[in-house]
Lab assay of single mutants.
Amino acid sequence: TTVKVNGTKYKFDTPEEAQKFAKKAADKYNLKVVVDGDDLRVE
Rank of each mutant, 00 (worst) to 15 (best):
Y10C: 06
R41G: 05
V35C: 07
D13A: 13
A18T: 01
D36R: 04
V3T: 00
K24E: 15
G7P: 00
G37A: 05
E16M: 08
D36N: 05
A22D: 02
L40T: 03
D38S: 10
T1Q: 06
G37C: 05
K11I: 14
V35P: 08
T1K: 07
K28R: 11
V35L: 11
A25W: 15
L31G: 15
V33D: 02
A25Q: 14
F21T: 02
Y10E: 02
K32R: 11
E16T: 07
E17D: 09
D38L: 11
K24Y: 14
D27C: 10
Y10A: 00
V5Q: 01
V3L: 02
V5R: 00
D36Y: 07
R41C: 10
V3Q: 00
E17A: 11
V35E: 09
D39W: 09
T2E: 05
E43M: 09
E43L: 07
T8S: 08
A18M: 01
V42E: 03
V5H: 05
A22Q: 00
T14Q: 03
K20G: 07
V34L: 09
D39A: 09
G37K: 05
K9Q: 12
D38W: 08
G7Y: 04
K4M: 15
K28I: 11
K32I: 14
E43K: 06
D13S: 11
A26K: 04
K28H: 12
G37R: 04
V42T: 04
T8A: 10
E43A: 08
K24C: 15
E43P: 03
F21D: 02
D13E: 11
T8K: 14
E16C: 05
V5N: 01
T8C: 13
V33M: 05
V35G: 06
D27L: 12
Y29T: 05
D38Q: 11
L31T: 14
Y29V: 04
D27H: 10
K28W: 13
P15D: 04
V5A: 04
E16Q: 10
A22C: 04
F12L: 03
L40I: 12
K20C: 01
N30L: 06
R41T: 12
K32L: 12
V5M: 11
A22R: 00
K11Y: 15
K20V: 12
F21C: 07
V5D: 00
K24G: 09
T2Y: 12
T2P: 01
K11P: 03
E43D: 11
K24T: 13
Y10N: 01
K24F: 14
T1F: 14
T8D: 06
K23N: 10
D38P: 12
N6A: 08
D27I: 10
Y29G: 07
D38Y: 09
Q19N: 07
G37L: 04
V35I: 13
Y10S: 01
L40A: 03
A18S: 02
Y10F: 11
P15H: 09
T14G: 03
P15S: 09
V34M: 09
E16V: 07
F21E: 03
D36F: 06
R41Q: 06
N6G: 12
T2F: 11
V35N: 08
L40Y: 09
F21P: 01
V5T: 02
Q19H: 13
D38R: 08
D27A: 13
V33N: 01
K11W: 14
V42L: 15
D27M: 11
G37F: 04
F12Y: 02
P15G: 04
V42H: 03
V33G: 01
V35K: 10
V35F: 13
V42I: 10
T2S: 07
E17K: 07
V34W: 11
K23I: 09
L40G: 03
E16S: 08
K24W: 15
T2L: 07
T8R: 14
V34R: 07
A26R: 04
A26W: 03
K23W: 09
A18N: 00
R41P: 03
A18W: 01
D36V: 10
T14D: 08
F21I: 01
K23H: 10
N30A: 08
D13W: 05
D39P: 02
G37Y: 04
K32Y: 10
F12R: 00
T2N: 06
Q19A: 12
L40H: 03
V35W: 13
A18Q: 01
V34Y: 13
K20Y: 11
P15T: 09
K4T: 15
A26S: 06
T8L: 13
N30T: 05
V33L: 06
V34K: 07
G37N: 06
K32A: 11
A22F: 03
D39K: 05
F12G: 00
F12H: 00
V33Q: 02
Q19F: 15
K4V: 15
A25L: 15
T1A: 06
K32N: 11
V33I: 13
K28V: 08
K23L: 10
E43G: 13
E43H: 06
T8I: 15
L40D: 03
V34D: 05
D13V: 07
T14Y: 03
R41S: 12
D36S: 07
P15F: 14
A22G: 01
K11R: 12
T2W: 12
T2G: 03
V35M: 11
A25P: 01
E43C: 11
E16D: 09
V3R: 00
A18P: 00
F12P: 00
F21Q: 02
Y29W: 11
D39T: 14
T2I: 12
K9T: 15
D36I: 08
V34E: 08
A18I: 00
F21Y: 06
K28L: 13
D13T: 09
Y29P: 05
T1C: 09
Y10I: 06
G37H: 05
D38A: 10
A18C: 01
P15V: 11
K24I: 13
G7V: 02
K24L: 14
V3S: 00
K23C: 09
P15M: 13
F12S: 00
K9R: 12
G37V: 04
K28C: 14
K4F: 15
D36K: 05
R41I: 15
K32S: 13
G37M: 05
A26F: 02
N30Q: 10
A25Y: 15
A22I: 04
T14I: 04
V34S: 08
K20Q: 13
L40N: 03
V35Y: 13
G7M: 04
K11L: 12
K20D: 14
K20A: 14
K23F: 10
D27V: 09
L31Q: 08
N30C: 10
K9A: 14
Y10Q: 01
T8V: 15
N6S: 05
Y10M: 04
R41H: 08
K9C: 14
A25H: 13
T1L: 10
T1E: 02
A22H: 00
K24M: 14
E17S: 06
Y29D: 06
V42K: 03
K28S: 07
D27Y: 09
A25G: 02
K28D: 10
L31H: 07
N30Y: 07
T8F: 14
A25M: 15
D27G: 06
Y29K: 05
Q19G: 06
V33P: 02
D13I: 06
V33T: 02
N6E: 05
D36E: 09
L31C: 05
V34G: 04
K11H: 14
N6L: 15
V34T: 10
E17C: 08
L40M: 06
E17Y: 02
T2K: 03
D36T: 05
V3K: 01
K9V: 15
K23R: 10
T2D: 03
D13M: 08
V42P: 03
T14H: 05
D36W: 07
D39F: 11
G7S: 05
K23M: 11
N6D: 07
A25N: 07
D13R: 12
R41Y: 10
D13K: 12
T8N: 11
K20E: 15
T2V: 12
V33K: 00
V5C: 02
R41V: 15
T8E: 09
F21A: 04
R41D: 04
P15R: 12
A26P: 00
K24N: 13
E17V: 03
N30S: 08
D38C: 09
K28F: 13
E16F: 08
G37Q: 05
V42W: 03
D13H: 09
G7F: 04
V3D: 00
D13Q: 11
K11G: 05
V34H: 08
K23G: 06
P15Y: 14
E17R: 04
D39I: 15
A22T: 01
K24R: 12
D36Q: 06
G7H: 06
T2M: 08
Y29F: 12
K32M: 12
N30V: 03
D27T: 09
Y29M: 11
T8G: 05
D27K: 12
V3A: 01
D39E: 15
Y10D: 01
Y10T: 02
T8Q: 13
Y29S: 05
F12T: 00
K9P: 10
P15A: 11
K4A: 10
K4H: 15
T8Y: 13
A25E: 14
F21M: 02
K9W: 14
A18F: 01
V33A: 02
A26D: 02
Y10P: 01
F21S: 01
V34C: 08
V34I: 13
G7K: 06
E17H: 05
T14E: 03
